[in-house]
Amino acid sequence: MTHSRYDEHSPPAGDWRREYWRKNLRLMMILLSVWFIVSFGCGILFVEQLNKIEIAGFPLGFWFAQQGAIYTFLVLILIYAVRMDRLDDEYGVSERDEDGERL
């Protein structure tokens, strides 16, 4: 269905490229901030403060460092992969065969 858009986007060169790249970078920066906060923030820098809170036997900072950060990483990559699929489609740069099917 997005195949038709594939052709619309060639000219004017430059503008759409810059826009696509900027959106990619913005998404990346947001996700990497979360990456930094859950691992280095919650797991290391503020681990002692968070450890004062206890949930299901786990001091919270300890939980982030040994469990929570890993779950978050997983979600971050999933969000990135899915959002980028959409962005690729929107700008007509997703990889498709002659019939417009995803490769």
Partner: peptide, 17 residues
């Protein structure tokens, strides 16, 4: 925890960068 976060967090960088 350094090993747990360190050896998984790299995949976020790998996937995005």
């Amino acid at each position: 925890s350094v090993y747990l976060m360190g050896w998984t967090g790299g995949y976020v960088l790998l996937a995005m960068l």
